[in-house]
């Protein structure tokens, strides 16, 4: 059985430093980043860009009717939509930068964006 006796004081410090570094790296790399604003698109064009700081409900017209986008508590969701299958509504609250909800039939989408734009699809 390995004993911990050979660990000297400096070793403990290095170990602690390692744990702190890993924690920091994990938090930095695995978080989508804080979202600042919501980009709302309708028929492929930007309908409006709204900050997440103010709670509000925005009505966006599309070919099928009006989609309602709710912004609450620095989160955004599509609250109501005339699309038949309601996928974008079921997606629920978007919290992190890069998250997106798309209502294809009504051609409305809402995307959260932070300071640095991240990839939404990749291929190589």
């Amino acid at each position: 059985m390995l004993s911990l006796a050979p660990i000297k004081i400096g070793d403990w410090m290095v170990l602690l430093l390692g744990v702190l570094c890993i924690t920091w790296i994990t938090i930095t790399l695995w978080q989508g980043g804080a979202a600042d604003k919501a980009i709302i698109r309708s028929s492929g064009k930007i309908f409006s860009e709204v900050p997440l700081s103010r709670n509000q409900i925005i009505s966006v017209p599309g070919p099928l009717g009006i989609s309602q986008i709710a912004i609450h508590n620095r989160q955004a969701r599509i609250a109501a939509d005339p699309s038949p299958r309601q996928y974008c509504v079921h997606q629920g609250w978007l919290k992190q930068a890069g998250e997106i909800a798309i209502c294809l039939p009504n051609q409305v989408s809402v995307e959260l964006s932070g300071r640095g734009k991240r990839y939404d699809s990749l291929n190589y």
């Binding site: 050979p6 660990i7 000297k8 004081i9 400096g10 070793d11 290095v14 170990l15 390692g18």
Partner: peptide, 9 residues
């Protein structure tokens, strides 16, 4: 203060 554990890490 620093032993093999440090070097290893």
């Amino acid at each position: 203060w620093f032993g093999p554990v440090t070097h290893s890490i």
